[in-house]
Design a binder for these strands. Structure first.
Lengths: 355, 355
DNA sequence: CTTTATTTTGAGACCGGTCTCATTGAAAGA
DNA sequence: TCTTTCAATGAGACCGGTCTCAAAATAAAG
């Protein structure tokens, strides 16, 4: 005379309890794997659970425990292989520790990032890994301290924030690469990045919202300055017109009468665009144009010439950020860590002396 | 004399209600944006909410509404640019419609995929977009019908399942590419994929778990057969030894005395590996080896020779799957759609007559 | 065979929202 | 002025788990 439960609506602990002839509390104990229960009851409850095809509602569980076992990851663009690799290593570590990852793309746009962070916080994520698009806009991240939501900054620091951060030694790497150009005899250099301008600072310097790019520019310029390269021969090319895109900036750069003989590309996408445009213009590489790129993208080994790159330890960075986040979630209260990872250049064929 | 609430624990509707001197129900109405409230009360409640820095707990909301506004996306490997682009377009559409995306990598491993799906269902996702790793193992997906969880299959169909699916015309594309090889005079061909073997079918044919790859192989072989190419000259190279990796299979392929003069690569990663190994062996391309690759990866335009590719409409596929999923979530009951997208080859320099 | 200690179980509050339903109060109609 | 009507509000159940605390059952000790 029992009511056959064939409805699609979900089976709850109460249902299992009823079927197993125990109280809701007891059923919950065995299904939730906490408290203490007798062997006999455990078997009975598990049998009922299987019979009814019980599935725990993790939302309800998170509700009461306050732990969602979910992490928000906010990156610039998952299509970018740099972030692709990062997200992969992050999710691997987190999944292995029982966390899930909600992914958000900021498109390197601060407003999008802020909204994403807010939504994720609303979803009660236990923590966030963010590659902040703008080092000058930090309110949305500062707020997280008030809530109990751990944060790790990935690839980009925010000087004003005392929070776990993993970056690579961008300035050093850029300086080294630039010095390599100069040592090879180059005197007209350019640094190219897809980052858009963020206005000017008080001292007249460009404000570069993306902190990693800012540091790379610092390194590039300091090496140029040290070698006595004139300002007009140490160009920094930003994505000045987001409508036209970076391609336009690169066109302009390569089409100018006295174009640089060596370019440092801020990421592999920029490098690829430079490569394409150089080929289109029959600019012989490396003889007419030397190139070094940040990020050892898979294709850089296969072009002619192969591309000398600055190899970022992307996976390691991702792993570190995930592991550090877990430590925080588990309650670690040690002072915020600023982890700087060393990059190394991989010398290939795209650098030579200017002809 | 009010108790100052500086604790980090979250502010609830009840707190806001108390502060605004209204009932919990009323506060909930204005904060949740439902029901009817007076102008005056609305202002007061919003003011209190702002003062207390109220943030809705989306988990609690999902709990009662039964809608989590979260979608699970399960792909083989987010590092693969094919999936990177897919996930990007999927998240774009879903975010624009108020959904969040929980990302999972299956590593093309069925067990991992099953576990991921189960976890996601436990998290009460409203729907799933899955690129199933194995077309013969479907129980975990069949189960979803019972629960009210929408599914869309991405890039890979499961013949036995009547569920929304978007794929591309893999067999046709593979056949066309193969015919192009044959028309150019090739008589020793190979199809290379990173997919592992799945044993044999009753008729002796290999079981290919990845359905898209299976269809491509069908297309490849049918074109070979039609042209009268001998079986030993229409090789299908799988990742026969997962420990050694695909590189080993490709080495073996290229090192054999009578190596193929034309290779069809099942994805851009395979193509890249072939490219690298051919270069290492000084196998001149395209003269000594022609190549066509599935997926118009960004780097294929920049190699020497540039690579002729079969361009999959990845973004469109992602968009379609997301849009279709939303329709289902919104209650659409039309019969399951099997959407097949056309691919087109982009002719570049990697195909020529065998010398 | 009690008494006491210990293990198991059950009842019910709680998390933070939504939602139903009854109640209040003010405007409109008689 | 006294209903009638309807907008606005409040009280409280509910979602599906967890968790506290007391009661019951069992085991050990006297």
């Amino acid at each position: 005379m029992k009511k056959t439960n064939l409805q699609s609506s979900s089976v709850t602990v109460a249902d299992v309890a009823r079927h197993a002839n125990v109280s809701k509390s007891t059923a919950a104990r065995v299904l939730g794997g906490y408290g203490v229960t007798s062997e006999k009851v455990r078997e009975r409850v598990h049998a009922s659970a299987k019979a009814l095809k019980y599935r725990a509602n993790e939302l309800a569980r998170s509700m009461t425990t306050g732990k969602s076992k979910t992490i928000g990851v906010v990156v610039g663009d998952i299509e970018n292989s740099f972030f692709g690799i990062a997200v992969r290593s992050i999710t691997d570590v987190l999944n292995a520790n029982g966390f899930n990852v909600i992914l958000a793309n900021s498109d390197e746009n601060f407003d999008v990032e802020r909204d994403a962070v807010n939504v994720l916080v609303g979803k009660q994520v236990d923590g966030l890994i963010v590659a902040p698009a703008n080092r000058y806009e930090t309110a949305h991240l500062e707020n997280l301290k008030t809530l109990n939501c751990a944060v790790v900054l990935f690839d980009r620091e925010i000087p004003s924030m005392d929070v776990d951060t993993v970056i690579s030694d961008d300035a050093d790497a850029a300086r080294n690469a630039t010095e390599a150009f100069i040592a090879a005899g180059h005197r007209r250099l350019a640094f190219v990045t897809a980052t858009i301008e963020g206005g000017r600072e008080d001292n007249g310097k460009w404000r570069i919202p993306t902190s990693s790019v800012g540091r790379r520019i610092d390194g590039f310029l300091s090496a140029c300055k040290e070698a006595g390269i004139a300002e007009e021969n140490s160009l920094v090319v930003l994505n000045s017109d987001p409508d036209l895109g970076l391609g336009a900036s690169i066109s302009k750069l390569l089409d100018q009468p006295e174009r640089p003989t060596a370019i440092l590309a801020s990421d592999s996408i920029v490098a690829l665009e430079i490569f394409k445009q150089a080929q289109k213009r029959d600019i012989e590489m490396p003889d007419a144009l030397s190139l070094i790129a940040f990020h050892n993208a898979d294709w850089t080994e296969v072009t002619r010439p192969t591309v000398t790159v600055i190899d970022q330890p992307v996976s390691e960075m991702g792993r570190w950020s995930a592991e550090q986040l877990i430590k925080r979630i588990e309650g670690s209260a040690e002072p915020a860590l600023h982890h700087v990872m060393k990059m190394k250049v991989i010398n290939r064929q795209s650098v030579t002396s200017p002809k």
